[in-house]
């Protein structure tokens, strides 16, 4: 009992994810700045931002639905934290696992997006509503390529559990190389999930101010910000667990350090990608996802099916 409470609140739960999420945000911001030939923020900036937001007043618009308005940031945060428990970090085995937890993780990662939509919709501001609708439109565009590209490694391992996938790839250490195409598709769709350039359409500041978060302030905005940071971590760890499942079986400390390196390198890739593109329009984004990403993830599945036929068994 105490053990599971400890793992929920301290490690690898809330506290660890908060620290890791904030440091990932710092790395993302610092790298973004350095890539743009700027100095960038000091290391404590994300913490300072969070403390500032938490010490401020929450303002809830009169027209908004207060219950939904308040519930959505908490839903987003809990969903992202929960999904992390199914991802293997320091050994092949995740904290909790059962056959099908891959689907659960993907489902739990959809919940924050849904809460951005509902939070925006119930705050009733025009900018929030446009942002909310854009969030949902974008979800329909990137979710299918993401799911299909994550399906491929699972198909190769013949399981729906991240833990069992890790076991499989430990037994066959070089098989992750077959999924490299899927990794790039998933990385691009991750940009859409995290609402970063070129897919930051739902919160395009020059068009709709801050999209969903226009009316949010104080602690509620702080929770949303925190959940986005943790979503970055969880998304990157999911990609690391699915596409880079090597080195987990050696020793816990080594595996954990390797896990951190993997996640941070994916975060770095996200920062580089968001530096070199302009924001797309929503129609162009949907078009791009269905016309290019979906076929590529489908191709990845075909490759895996072909391989399974004559290579693996």
């Amino acid at each position: 009992m105490i053990g599971s409470l400890l793992s929920i609140f301290i490690f690898p739960g809330f506290l660890f994810l908060m620290v890791f999420g904030l440091s990932a945000e710092f790395i993302d911001r610092k790298l973004y700045a350095r890539l743009q030939n700027r100095v960038g923020p000091p290391w404590f900036q994300p913490v300072a931002d969070l403390i500032k937001l938490f010490s401020k007043e929450d303002i809830i618009p009169e027209e908004a639905n207060p219950a939904m308005f308040k519930a959505m940031p908490i839903l987003a945060l809990t969903a992202t934290i929960t999904s992390f428990f199914y991802i293997p970090t320091w050994r092949n085995e995740a904290l909790y696992h059962f056959n099908g937890d891959l689907i659960i993780v993907l489902y739990l990662l959809t919940l924050p997006t849904l809460s951005y939509f509902l939070g925006g919709w119930y705050s009733t501001s025009l900018f929030s509503k446009i942002g909310a609708v854009r969030t949902l439109t974008q979800l329909f565009a990137y979710e299918v390529p993401l799911l299909m590209s994550i399906l491929a490694p699972a198909l190769l391992a013949d399981t729906w559990s991240l833990t069992e996938m890790a076991v499989f790839y430990s037994a066959h250490p070089w098989y992750w190389l077959f999924n490299i195409l899927g990794f790039f598709v998933a990385l691009i769709t991750l940009l859409g999930k995290l609402e970063k350039v070129p897919f930051d359409i739902p919160e395009a500041e020059t068009e709709i101010v801050a999209g969903t978060f226009t009316e949010y302030s104080g602690r509620l905005l702080g929770l949303f910000r925190l959940s986005m940071d943790i979503e970055l971590i969880v998304g990157a760890s999911l990609l690391a667990a699915v596409y880079m499942p090597f080195g987990l079986a050696i020793s816990p400390i080594f595996a954990f350090i390797l896990f951190l390196i993997k996640v941070l390198s994916i975060v770095a890739m996200v920062s580089v990608l968001r530096t070199v593109f302009a924001r797309l329009r929503i129609d162009q984004m949907v078009n791009f996802c269905w016309r290019y990403l979906a076929p590529f993830s489908f191709l990845q599945i075909l490759i895996i099916l072909a391989l399974k036929g004559f290579l693996v068994r």
Partner: peptide, 22 residues
């Protein structure tokens, strides 16, 4: 060419920031 600025952007990592800490 997608990501046309990538070479310039990555080379900035090894340059001193242009910003002056006023």
């Amino acid at each position: 060419r997608p990501a046309k600025m990538i070479r310039q952007v990555l080379s900035s990592l090894f340059k001193k920031p242009a910003t002056n800490l006023y």
